[in-house]
Write a protein that binds this DNA or RNA. Structure first.
Lengths: 237, 237
DNA sequence: TTCGTTGTCGAACACCGTTCTACGTACGAA
DNA sequence: TTCGTACGTAGAACGGTGTTCGACAACGAA
């Protein structure tokens, strides 16, 4: 403003020096903020850059690519997870608590599951969660190999659940239409050919139960925990 | 060729009438072929149209959008699944067979899991698979509600597994590098801070076992089947 | 002070799904 | 047989994506 407009001596001193510099941390912060605010679709390199007042190319000095940014967001989110200390007396309850806690964080960052699925979580916080889950399993007497695979299976289940929810959440219909959709589904099941789909028809009600809420997730958690419990070698007690 | 080039009487009669017309079936065929040949990334509306010798806009007369095309591919693939007839004596074995069969088809169409996850499979063939799986579960005495949720949980697990594999398959490193990657992973686990990651270090070997092959999947299948078995109410026998 | 390294960032590339719109062709009605 | 219309075709374009290029500016070391 106070400079001659016809002779741009150092063109406006872009006020960039005044602004705090771009860092990996600020980028992840902004990305997560965008994720919480507007969902996973909104987290594009362009939108993150725009939110930071710059162009997309600038991000690549701090982040290798979008996938790495996803991983960084994931690990930042993993820091929110508070898993219980292992208590041999209640390992099954604790395992379920832990599963709900992971799901809670996944839900807090809708769409993050999309980044998490199929990626080995190597971030520090994610690995701390794994460590705690291993402790619970070992406290319960689950054999080493089973425990090792379980800490792969359990996040897989939770992530897939969260992914599913995020897909449905990102779909066109609003959550309040969900009940109507389920109703539609149930009547569709009921209208099938009874000769070919007898069980689907008979169980139409059961299959469409628990579309919202945690009933389905809780069932999966129970199945997994019971399955793991069956692998604990019998000792005394 | 045999027409005067300077006076295009009926401009070349675009040989389009000679070509068989576009149909939904041909589109799905081409898309699946592309999927098998080049992976999920290659299945774009543009590439499918190009393979059919036309432009992307033409597809929209037969297919609502990409998502519907994904669903159609999925159901076509589901037609390949051959699930066993229910036999009460061997329901657990049969359930595992069924799970492997679904996985086999998912693997035959790499990346299809990406389309399947989070979608209620309503196609005819997909629902026939569900029906057969319900039959196996009911033959085993699994309660109705558990069976109904199980036919949701089981495909979720399989799809997530296939998804994971397709992500790793689409990654930069070739499958032959996988062993090296696993080795790297193991040594990374081993180099962690023993005070904070004692179990991760102790189980580094177990956690990196079965990266390729079916060991991990088999474990998941065993856990789920055992968990379901524990829900079968005890009767005689 | 000069040099070289490093972060910044507008522009561009090659894609993507989808829509608009003009154009032919084919078919039913007159 | 002719006409009108409705429908499938498809080029072009819109707005979006991740990523790369290359010019530029800022700063620390020599």
């Amino acid at each position: 403003m106070n400079q001659s407009p016809w002779q741009p001596i150092t063109p406006a001193k872009p006020a960039r020096a005044a602004r705090e510099p771009l860092t990996r941390e600020r980028i992840v912060d902004t990305a997560l903020h965008l994720l919480v605010e507007q969902g996973y679709e909104a987290v594009s390199m362009r939108k993150v850059a725009q939110a930071l007042g710059t162009g997309p190319a600038s991000l690549y000095a701090h982040v290798a690519n979008k996938k790495e940014l996803d991983q960084l967001m994931l690990d930042r989110a993993a820091a929110d997870m508070k898993l219980p200390d292992a208590d041999p007396e209640r390992w099954q309850d604790q395992l379920k608590e832990a599963m709900y806690e992971v799901l809670r964080v996944m839900r807090a960052y809708p769409g993050l599951a999309r980044a998490a699925i199929g990626q080995v979580p190597l971030g520090e916080y994610a690995m701390l969660s794994t460590e705690r889950m291993l402790a619970i399993l070992k406290a319960g007497g689950v054999p080493d190999q089973a425990a090792a695979w379980a800490v792969d299976l359990i996040p897989l289940f939770i992530t897939a659940t969260a992914f599913e929810e995020s897909v449905q959440g990102a779909a066109d219909f609003a959550p309040e239409d969900l009940e109507g959709f389920v109703e539609q589904l149930r009547s569709y099941f009921g209208s099938l050919d009874p000769a070919r789909f007898p069980l689907t028809i008979a169980l139409a009600g059961a299959m469409t139960t628990g579309a919202s809420g945690d009933e389905r997730f809780d069932f999966g958690a129970r199945v997994i925990i019971a399955g793991l419990a069956s692998m604990v070698p019998e000792t005394d007690a």
